[in-house]
Structures are given as structure tokens and as C-alpha cells.
């Protein structure tokens, strides 16, 4: 045993949302935490199935002073197809592509794509405040109209960014729900979006999920740093390390 002084276990419990200190029934988990786990699993599975209310999200963004977003969809028409066919979720459907081709797209610094991914609740809760925080920090950037994509995956941003003639695409997308985090948002940055990009050419800020994960301000600090660096060095991906240190909460 060590003689080093005690750390109150309560402080430890408060320092993490992880399921620590559950106790034991033999080797097994006691009944109450067993059922709490099953409750969380049920909620997460239900969150995956919740559809994105694109019109309500668009209205929220308009109320925040943005131009009306483009509302798009991929070729994965429903959740079941979306889950089984990632290839379809990476490409716009015909009508959406047509809409973008018909939309004037003067060259711009960055295009923001908001996609449901695997958690519409994450997108609806955290994308608007994050976008506001980011636009405040990069007010002198030239922003394309925001796109909202139903049944979208990260790589759909490559197609949209290219069609909008953007140097950089930022995809805000609902992450795979965890048991205690059914509303976690991820942000993916890709320089020179287009069909040739792969995942190693992106930078990601994940776990945007106040209060347990990053707040919109913390995430915006990281993203603004990455975006500035990306523009200066004309690249994203593993060659661009996240050397920005977030301020303590």
C-alpha cells in the first residue's frame, strides 16, 4: 500500500462520465446499473432512427441571420438503406446535385455542410451555436451558403464543396451515438474538396457535446486555428497537426 495522501473518490467520480465504481455482484454488475445500461442502449438505438428536421434547422439558422440554407439529400433514401449502404450516403441524389449545379457558386473560402449522420439530435442541438461561434472568429472569411444534407456521410462534403467552388469544406455531422452520448457532433475539415480525397486528408474535431464534451466555443477555437492553418499551408489531414491547445474550460 502507498502512503501518498487520499484523493476523495467523489472527485474521481465527478471527473468522468464513464461508468466507474459500479460495484459487483460476484463477477457481474449489480442489477440497478445493469438496467441503467439497458435504458441508455435503448435510447441510443432510438436516436439513430430519429429523422433530421431539416426545415426546422434551416429556420433556426435563418433566425440567426444566415442566408437560407440549401436543403439536400443523398441517394440513401431512408435509414435502413443509409445504414447498409455507406456508398449512397456519400453521394448527392440527382435532384440535389442538379440544384447545386444550378446555384451560382462564386469561389469562396469555406463551405459548411450540416449532415444528420448517425444522430440528428446532435446536429439540431450543437451545429447552430458552433457555426455562430466559428463565424464570429473568422468574420473576414468568404462563406458559401450552408448546406443541410439528409442521410449524409462525411464524404458527401467533397462533392458539395467542389460544386460550391470552396477551398475548404467543413462537415458538421452527428456522430455514432454512445450510451451516454447520443448527441455528439463531429466536425471534419477537408482542403480542396473533390472526388480524389481520402480520410487521411481530413482533420477532425470530435465530441462536441456540452457539457461533457467540447463546448461550441472550445470547438470553434480549435476549428478556427485548423482552418487558418489549412488556408495558409493549403492542406488538411495528417500533415496538419492539431497544435492548438484549447483553453481549459
Amino acid at each position: 500500500m502507498s502512503d501518498v495522501p487520499d484523493v476523495p473518490s467523489l472527485r474521481l467520480r465527478r471527473a468522468t462520465p464513464a461508468r466507474i465504481g459500479l460495484g459487483r455482484a460476484g463477477s457481474g454488475i449489480p442489477t440497478a446499473p445493469l438496467l441503467e445500461f439497458q435504458l441508455a442502449h435503448a435510447l441510443a438505438r432510438d436516436a439513430v432512427q430519429t429523422p433530421l428536421d431539416a426545415d426546422a434547422l434551416a429556420a433556426t439558422l435563418v433566425r440567426a441571420g444566415l442566408p437560407p440554407p440549401l436543403i439536400l439529400a443523398t441517394g440513401a433514401g431512408d435509414r435502413t438503406t443509409y445504414l447498409a449502404r455507406p456508398d449512397l450516403g456519400r453521394r448527392l441524389d440527382h435532384a440535389s446535385r442538379q440544384l447545386l449545379e444550378d446555384t451560382p457558386a462564386p469561389p469562396c473560402d469555406v463551405a459548411v455542410v450540416i449532415a444528420d449522420g448517425l444522430s440528428a439530435p446532435a446536429v439540431e442541438s450543437h451545429a447552430p451555436p458552433l457555426l455562430r461561434a466559428l463565424q464570429t472568429r473568422l468574420a473576414n472569411w468568404n462563406w458559401a451558403r450552408v448546406s443541410i444534407v439528409r442521410q449524409g456521410r462525411v464524404a458527401v462534403g467533397d462533392e458539395i464543396g467542389a460544386l460550391l467552388s470552396a477551398d475548404l469544406v467543413l462537415v458538421l455531422i452527428g456522430e455514432r451515438p454512445g450510451l451516454s452520448s447520443s448527441d455528439s457532433l463531429g466536425a471534419y475539415l477537408t482542403w480542396a474538396p473533390g472526388p480524389a480525397r481520402c480520410d487521411a486528408e481530413r482533420n477532425c474535431v470530435s465530441n462536441i457535446r456540452p457539457p461533457h464534451g467540447l463546448t461550441p466555443d472550445q470547438a470553434a477555437d480549435k476549428l478556427a486555428w485548423l482552418m487558418t492553418q489549412a488556408r495558409r499551408r493549403r492542406l488538411t489531414g495528417t500533415a496538419l497537426k492539431d497544435e492548438h491547445t484549447a483553453l481549459p474550460p
Partner: peptide
């Protein structure tokens, strides 16, 4: 071994410390 089988960072379920005890014991 993940606390309560719930990875709060990666958002998936793995095996828990309890599961490891079960496997070793059984």
C-alpha cells in the same frame, strides 16, 4: 476492459472490467 462496457469517448460498447472477471472466473 472499459468501465461498464460503455466507451464514453468512442461511442460504442466493448467488454467491461466485470466481463473480464466473468471470463477469467468462469
Amino acid at each position: 476492459g472499459v468501465p461498464g462496457a460503455d466507451d464514453v469517448m468512442l461511442g460504442y460498447q466493448s467488454t467491461s472490467f466485470h466481463d473480464a472477471l466473468y471470463a477469467r472466473d468462469t
